[in-house]
Design a protein around this nucleic acid. Sequence first.
DNA 1: CTGGGCTCCTGTCAGC
DNA 2: TGCTGACAGGAGCCCA
Length: 272
Amino acid sequence: MPELPEVETTRRSFAERIEGATVRQVRLGKPLRWPLGCPPEALVAQTVGSASRRGKYLWLPLERGGLLMHLGMSGSLAFSEVPVSPPGAHDHFDLVTSRGTLRLTDPRRFGAVVWSPALDDGPAAKLLATLGLEPFDPAFDGGHLHRALRGRRVAIKQALLAGDVVVGAGNIYACEALFEARIDPRTAAGRVSRARCERLATAIRRILAQALELGGSTLRDFRDAHGMAGSFQQHAAVYGRQGEPCLVCGTPVRRIVQAQRSTFFCAHCQRR
DNA sequence: CTGGGCTCCTGTCAGC
DNA sequence: TGCTGACAGGAGCCCA
């Protein structure tokens, strides 16, 4: 579900409200992708720090270590300042604090909450080790893309999703950015020209920034920690528009499958 | 090292 | 109404 704009929207919607709170209780539901990695009681009485984001991961610092959280495909976080209902069938993690409750709801349970001694140590360090640049990092530009993709034969779409070159663009935004940059998603990553890499870097940043402004995409059920839906999906040029006319040239948008994921593109506008 | 495929899990929807 | 299969916003891991 959540790509960078959704994760960042979520972070912004609860970070200030939870910062400085004291953990009162931790409730666990069904197992998530990985175990918490510490006894839940060990978190009690610790003060919560300022939540940050790296790629699609959120880091919630505590006094001793912190929690690395990932929303997987179907996860969302809600922060409630008033008492919450008892955990439902899909509520698998509650961090009850003096300021309110941060609740992870995740039907598919691909998400995770993992305790780590530090962001640059333990499980967090391991999970973040292979991540590429943040799209809004000044070092991320066409030159970086071009260098990082050199020699890679995977399709450019898959290379973007892999997240080791640039983080944050998942299936929706990778499709949208490739459309905006007019690049065929099937092109071998290492064969994307320098000029196209410049266009692609610009497109990735612009698309993600626009999605962020719109509060992300709500395809079925995404909500930020306030319960607000995003609206980027209404601006998608190709994603989910299979068979509908390309907004630029009118050619029907195509859907293909790459690495078991749908790719939407315009075969006329996006040519090698 | 690269790349391809599988896997985790549940819900929803289209088609019969 | 019920069943079946396809598909869903991610990404780690294993194997060739």
